[in-house]
């Protein structure tokens, strides 16, 4: 295991109860992601991709095994500790954009900075410039296209300057032109040092990532 990893999973398993049945979503998974990597996590539906991302993102705890994120042992953390870790270390981008419809684009982007007690419209404006939406700061989300909304969501995920960006099917709702634009932003962020992990079905995206992790039946296939 690489000690310089920004994300480190060691023999991680995750079981769920579904009625009387136990679902083994992850089985003895070990994975290390080093700073600045650009990783695609691929696999069929139900293979355990999203569970893996939730565990990497501290949204869920493993049933067994260790998770070390940004140098910190996840299993030792309280719920509040995990929240603090998510605030500082991880940016999330989902297939749905989850923008607040009554807040402007600028306000949506600066929203996560409110939770760290340092609301920052200045940085939000810079990030929106970076994703090419500097001229749409005061628009409402319903005045944007799908691609623009996802770019706002990316800007929002970066407001607290996290070293890791986790994206779950970020282009799932977009046409190919917008998907390409989103991937270019990810590539640019990665070049600037952000570790990017993308969960996807899309082979075009997989080809653009520098590393591919294939997961099947809860196991990572080498």
């Amino acid at each position: 295991m690489n000690n310089g990893s920004v994300i480190e999973l060691e023999n991680v398993s995750k079981d769920y109860r579904r009625g009387s049945e136990t679902v083994h979503a992850l089985r003895d998974v070990s994975l290390a992601v080093t700073p600045g990597e650009y990783v695609a996590v691929v696999g069929h539906s139900g293979s355990g991709k999203t569970t893996l991302m939730n565990i990497m993102g501290c949204l869920d705890r493993p049933s067994r095994g260790r998770v070390i994120l940004d140098g910190q042992e996840v299993h030792e953390k309280t719920e509040a500790g995990l929240t603090r870790l998510r605030r500082s270390a991880i940016g999330f981008v989902f297939q749905q954009f989850f923008l607040i419809p009554t807040l402007s684009v600028l306000e949506n982007v600066s929203l996560p900075s409110l939770f760290v007690g340092k609301p920052s419209n200045g940085r939000a404006g810079e990030l929106l410039e970076m994703v090419g939406l500097g001229n749409r700061l005061h628009h409402l989300p319903n005045q944007l296209s799908g691609g623009e909304m996802q770019r706002v969501a990316i800007a929002r995920s970066l407001i607290n300057a996290p070293p890791i960006l986790l994206a779950d099917e970020p282009t799932g709702n977009l046409d190919s032109r917008n998907a390409d634009m989103i991937m270019k932003i990810f590539e640019q962020l990665n070049q600037e040092g952000v570790t990017v992990v993308v969960v996807t079905h899309n082979q075009d995206i997989v080809k653009r990532c520098r590393r591919k992790v294939h997961i099947e039946d809860g196991r990572i296939e080498t």
């Binding site: 509040a80 603090r84 998510r86 999330f92 749905q96 929203l111």
Partner: peptide, 16 residues
């Protein structure tokens, strides 16, 4: 619920 879930993902704590 989904939006609140997302807010939790991006660091909204219980008291927030």
């Amino acid at each position: 619920r989904r939006e609140i879930a997302y807010l939790k993902c991006v660091g909204a704590g219980k008291y927030d």
